[in-house]
Write a protein that binds this DNA or RNA. Structure first.
Length: 431
RNA sequence: UCCUCGGUAGCUCAGUCGGUAGAGCGAGUGGCUGUUAACCACCAGGUCGGGGGUUCGAGUCCCUCCCGGGGAGCCA
């Protein structure tokens, strides 16, 4: 007997085959029983019409509790009532392993309970849809860079120092009383790689010991970080725009069904066109002041400010050229105004704030040495980084996109914890 | 770290003025020939987060600790 996945059933009408999976739910109505079978690729309804079966099999059907693993043999039939278009007329089934008192019912649950049962919560329809979109977002972001001949260069996770002095790092005991830190960004290493190979990117986890307890923060998240030699800030923003647009189009093409499960209205995403808006920091401040929001030049944006900016536009906005004082030491300053740094953030639409942060890096060793001093950073920790400016330095730029921030926006999910398989937050590291 | 909200049945919650603990869902049992988070009937299920205090009497008031949610700062 052929064994197949539920996602392939539409091409199998009239075939007799075996499906392996788990019980999503059962229903019965007198002489007819229904089994919703889940196998990770989809959910299909299997029908047991009692008059066609032995009493033993009908009794055995009663043992199909939620999440029992089971093997079902039957005929694939077209059925217009089914959302899938097909259903299975059961011949026989075989219980592989029973599931007793499965804690997650198909009804409502609180965030705490679901997070504690994340290992099981992942089996639900909604989580399945989110994970498929996440998987595709990663795949297509990588594909975008591969298509442009970028090299994927992996950055280390153990790092000797901070890439931004301000953020908090997780400290790890290394050998012989040595301390290392979990990487909060691959950027510095991508700069080295860009000067070696021109166009590079990395995709990996980032760790930040920020004591943030919000629906937008994780202590462990994944980001994709390209870096390009001879790029300036404007080319960098263009690259970010092209990447976001590319991934969006692919997701809209491939994941309509998942968006439907998530009840995500895709109109706002479909309406997004190139070019995205560009807004200088200075103009953004005026815009906020015009909206009677209390903010002055030199302040950094908070989450409500970002939301206020994004609601003025029907597509993502790049805010660029921030005051250098609120940006990292490695950012190149604007040659037209030294108070400005050539950095940008991309603010996604619909109230979802900063999704991308990037900019042009300082390539002069003299300027960089001065900056390290100003930021009170230890020079010896950045010795190798300074070498990049010693041996054939060139202008270069890059950015980092938090994949969870992106997926959260695209799926319009309330909590960022739902868009990563196993979330790590300030006070939760289980399961 | 600070602000704020919460912890009552397996889950989601209600519980008035301090007076002896409730619902829906889920589980279980029975019924129903097409159900889509099915429906109908019946039924079991409680250390009211922990500790202390006030009171004749505390889920309810006070103190304290623990746990969780949301937000600020910071960030992707």
């Amino acid at each position: 007997m052929k064994s197949l996945y539920i996602s392939e059933l539409k091409k199998q009408i009239g075939e007799k085959l075996t499906l392996k999976g788990w019980v999503y739910n059962t229903r019965s109505s007198g002489k007819i029983s229904f089994l919703m079978l889940r196998d990770g690729t989809g959910i299909v309804q299997c029908v047991l019409f009692h008059p066609n079966h032995t009493q033993e099999r009908i009794n055995r059907f009663e043992e199909l509790t939620q999440e029992t693993s089971v093997e079902v043999t039957g005929l694939v039939k077209e059925d217009k009532r089914s959302p899938l278009g097909v259903e299975i007329e059961i011949d026989d089934f075989n219980i592989l392993s029973k599931s007793v008192d499965y804690p997650i019912s198909p009804k409502e649950h609180g965030v705490d309970f679901l997070q504690s049962n994340r290992h099981l919560w992942l089996r639900s329809k909604r989580q399945m849809a989110i994970m498929k979109i996440r998987s595709d977002a990663i795949f297509y972001a990588r594909e975008f860079f591969n298509n442009l001949d970028f090299l994927c260069i992996d950055a280390p996770i153990f790092t000797p120092s901070a890439c931004e002095g301000t953020t908090t790092l997780f400290e790890v005991d290394y050998f012989d009383d040595k301390k290392v830190y979990l990487s909060q960004s691959g950027q510095l290493y991508m700069e080295a790689a860009a000067l070696a190979y021109g166009k590079v990117y990395c995709f990996g986890p980032a760790f930040r010991a920020e004591k943030s307890k919000t629906r937008r923060h994780l202590t462990e998240f994944w980001q994709i970080e390209p870096e390009v030699a001879f790029f300036d800030i404007d080319q960098d923003m263009q690259l970010a725009e092209d990447m976001v647009f590319y991934v969006l189009q692919k997701l809209l093409e491939r994941r309509q069904e998942e968006f439907k499960i998530l009840e995500r209205d895709t109109k706002p995403l479909e309406n997004i066109k190139k070019p995205f808006y560009r807004l200088s920091y200075t103009d953004a401040i005026s815009l906020l002041q015009k909206k009677k929001i209390e903010i002055k030049w030199g302040d950094d944006f908070g989450a409500p400010d970002e939301a206020a900016i994004s609601e003025e536009f029907d597509r993502p906005v790049f805010v660029h050229r921030y005051p250098s004082e609120i940006k990292a030491f490695y950012m190149k300053h604007d040659k037209n105004d030294d108070k400005l740094a050539l950095g940008f953030d991309m603010i996604a639409g619909e109230g979802y704030g900063e999704t991308i942060g990037g900019g042009q890096r300082e390539e002069s060793i003299d300027v960089l040495l001065k900056r390290l001093e100003e930021h009170k950073l230890p020079q010896d920790a950045f010795k190798w980084y300074l070498d990049l400016r010693r041996y054939g330095s060139v202008p270069h730029a890059g950015f980092g996109m938090g994949i969870e921030r992106f997926v959260q926006w695209v799926t319009k999910t309330q909590h960022i914890r739902e868009v990563i398989p196993f979330a790590r937050t300030m006070d939760r590291t289980e399961p």
